[in-house]
């Protein structure tokens, strides 16, 4: 018997699997914030490195799409480069780094600074889809808690944080209530990004490959970060501007620049930073020439 010839389908996943994922996505759209189980397939990257996001993207990407992939807000971090190269190879998709040009943006841990528009799809890579996991490790239990809308555990945890630290000690993957019904893990985006999910015109798809779950926030859906009347949700903020482009009110990375602990703060969203920096340089040149 001769060794089998290795051939891969367009977009890597076979058509049957794409249909399975699309069905899960449709169910997710119908029940915002509900975790839909799906038969997650292996993809040629390790579990935990974005296999859920890759499957969701593979199921929705088409010939007319333009794909942007970011990791930690940046287009040029190694894993983002690797995933973008994968889709260029197996789906023949056009790719971009510009948020406003992309029809599909696959992301790990950030929502772009540039506001998203209608007809854009944001695909999140999700490590732990269950917001109650660290309060109750058993899925058989958490499923029941979601069904009964029993989120007391979560509020107790937030209350205990306030009692111990004076703050809700949750800085990323901050739990949200979707459409007034399901408590949902927004994936480890910083709480800074949480408000961007609320009433977003874009379709937000969440894929957890290793945990075999898909969930969705349809466009224009209420997404409320949990809090209390006297301790409302407060997204993290930065006092300083980006030291490269001067943007304020954006999420910053701290880059250590010497061995004495000195650091500079720069935009985590590289596309936003580059475009703002280029625009301000252009303004200055226009002023000089005028």
């Amino acid at each position: 018997m001769s060794a089998p010839h290795i051939v891969y389908n367009e977009g890597y996943l076979d058509e049957q699997t794409k249909r399975v994922i699309r069905r899960a996505l449709l169910k997710g759209v119908a029940i915002p914030g509900f975790q839909v189980p799906f038969a997650s397939r292996e993809v040629p990257m390790p579990r935990g490195w974005g296999t859920g996001g890759v499957q969701v993207t593979a199921a929705v990407i088409g010939a007319s799409d333009t794909l942007k992939v970011i990791d930690q807000g940046a287009d040029d971090t190694t894993n983002a480069v690797s995933i973008r190269a994968f889709f260029e190879k197996v789906a023949g998709a056009r790719s971009t780094t510009r948020t406003d040009e992309a029809t599909i943006i696959q992301t790990r841990h950030r929502i772009p600074e540039t506001p998203l528009a209608e007809k854009q799809i944001l695909v999140y890579q999700v490590p732990i889809p269950e917001p109650l996991r660290f309060l109750e490790p058993r899925e058989t239990e958490t499923r029941r808690l979601h069904a009964l809308e029993e989120y007391g555990l979560m509020y107790v945890k937030l209350y205990e944080d306030i009692a111990r630290y004076g703050h809700i000690a949750k800085t990323y993957d901050y739990p949200v209530l979707v459409n007034g019904r399901y408590v949902m893990a927004p994936s480890p985006i910083p709480s800074f990004d949480n408000p961007k999910m609320h009433q977003s015109p874009a379709l937000q798809l969440f894929g957890a490959g290793r945990e075999k779950r898909i969930y969705v926030i349809p466009p224009f859906t209420d997404v409320e970060s949990l809090g209390f009347e006297d301790f409302p949700f407060e997204p993290q903020r930065f006092d300083q501007p980006c030291e490269i482009c001067g943007s304020v009110g954006v999420y910053l990375d701290e880059v250590i620049i010497d061995d004495r602990g000195n650091a500079m703060f720069v935009c985590s969203d590289t596309d936003h930073c580059e475009r703002t920096a280029t625009a301000s340089v252009r303004d200055e040149t226009t002023e000089v020439s005028a």
């Binding site: 292996e42 390790p46 579990r47 935990g48 490195w49 296999t51 990791d71 930690q72 807000g73 971090t77 190694t78 894993n79 790990r108 841990h109 950030r110 490590p127 703050h167 000690a169 800085t171 990323y172 993957d173 480890p188 985006i189 910083p190 709480s191 800074f192 290793r210 993290q236 930065f238 999420y251 910053l252 990375d253 701290e254 985590s268």
Partner: peptide, 24 residues
């Protein structure tokens, strides 16, 4: 396959989450 991937993903960049923890 799942275990190895998830343990090893810890070497992927986590600047954003770590920044959030640093802030807190």
């Amino acid at each position: 396959v799942q275990a190895a991937g998830f343990v090893e993903h810890l070497k992927l960049p986590h600047y954003v989450d770590f920044q959030a923890e640093l802030g807190l």
